[in-house]
Simulated scan of single mutants.
Amino acid sequence: MGRLKDNFEDVEMIGSGVMRSMHWARTTAVRRVLLIIGSSVILVGLYVLLINHLSSYQLERSDYRAKAAGQDYDAIQYAELLDLIDECLAPRNAALVEFACRAADLKYSEVQRGSAVVHRKDVLERGDYPRMRIDVRSAQRLLDLQRIGSVPSTLREDLYEVMRSTYGKVGTILLFGVVYLTIWLAPHFLNYRESALRSRQPSPGHRLAGDATEEGIPFGDVPNLPHERIHHPDRR
């Protein structure tokens, strides 16, 4: 709840800063141009920072996916190696058995995981295929513990792909155009609103006439008073 409150306070602070900038720029055209330049620097800087962040994140996720793909490949190789060991130990045609054993030896020499107590060189020299099978199954269990599995795309990855696309670039240009137009027109709107408010306010003379009328005091042309006839002979 506190974090949400802090976010609202940040948004309110940014909004007040924007409004102060609009009021500052509404007086002259030079200030409006300066506001456009400053806003351009801020927007372009934020856009570059966002692109760099999304690009770095995309690279990290690519490495993550490459690791997951490598683990999937190892799992397939272990399954094939177990099949070859079974064929090698099966009492079948000697030629097929010899082929399966040679293939099993070749694949087993490439195994990176497995039991720490098994010396693969000794297993290969002795042709100990039961021990080889135990070692490969140990490697499979270790792979299952480390396996990442499928790597779904995240929101940031989808956003990066959209921004890289043609539609994303056109949308970004249109968004910048709308922001620039808003920044340019907002000071004019503030000036217009202030002028409209001033035109609706009564002038001091009208306010004085209204106050005098409400109090029952004559306002405007009044009959000439006696002392006024003396000082103002033109009045009758």
Rank of each mutant, 00 (worst) to 15 (best):
residue 140 Q to A: 03
residue 99 F to K: 10
residue 61 R to A: 06
residue 130 P to L: 05
residue 132 M to D: 00
residue 229 R to F: 09
residue 36 I to C: 07
residue 30 V to S: 11
residue 90 A to V: 03
residue 233 P to V: 11
residue 75 A to F: 07
residue 161 E to K: 14
residue 91 P to V: 04
residue 220 G to Q: 06
residue 173 I to V: 15
residue 165 S to P: 03
residue 82 L to H: 02
residue 70 G to F: 01
residue 25 A to Q: 03
residue 179 V to Q: 01
residue 163 M to Y: 12
residue 183 I to N: 02
residue 195 S to H: 14
residue 50 L to N: 08
residue 198 R to H: 09
residue 64 Y to D: 04
residue 24 W to C: 04
residue 189 F to K: 10
residue 173 I to C: 02
residue 36 I to Y: 06
residue 18 V to L: 14
residue 11 V to L: 15
residue 3 R to M: 12
residue 103 A to V: 05
residue 210 G to H: 14
residue 28 T to I: 00
residue 213 T to E: 15
residue 215 E to P: 05
residue 121 K to R: 12
residue 171 G to K: 01
residue 58 Q to R: 11
residue 188 H to R: 14
residue 145 L to A: 11
residue 215 E to K: 15
residue 132 M to T: 02
residue 69 A to N: 09
residue 185 L to R: 12
residue 62 S to V: 01
residue 115 S to P: 02
residue 166 T to A: 14
residue 200 R to A: 14
residue 209 A to Q: 12
residue 68 A to P: 04
residue 75 A to S: 14
residue 24 W to T: 01
residue 45 G to N: 02
residue 230 I to F: 12
residue 168 G to N: 06
residue 193 R to W: 09
residue 114 G to D: 06
residue 27 T to E: 13
residue 152 P to K: 00
residue 32 R to T: 07
residue 68 A to W: 00
residue 184 W to P: 03
residue 114 G to R: 03
residue 155 L to Y: 08
residue 147 R to G: 08
residue 77 Q to Y: 04
residue 121 K to D: 15
residue 126 R to L: 07
residue 194 E to S: 11
residue 123 V to C: 04
residue 161 E to M: 11
residue 102 R to W: 01
residue 63 D to C: 04
residue 48 V to R: 05
residue 43 L to C: 07
residue 101 C to E: 01
residue 63 D to Q: 10
residue 16 S to E: 14
residue 143 L to H: 01
residue 227 H to W: 12
residue 139 A to R: 07
residue 233 P to S: 13
residue 56 S to Y: 07
residue 101 C to G: 04
residue 48 V to K: 06
residue 107 K to S: 10
residue 86 D to M: 00
residue 105 D to V: 00
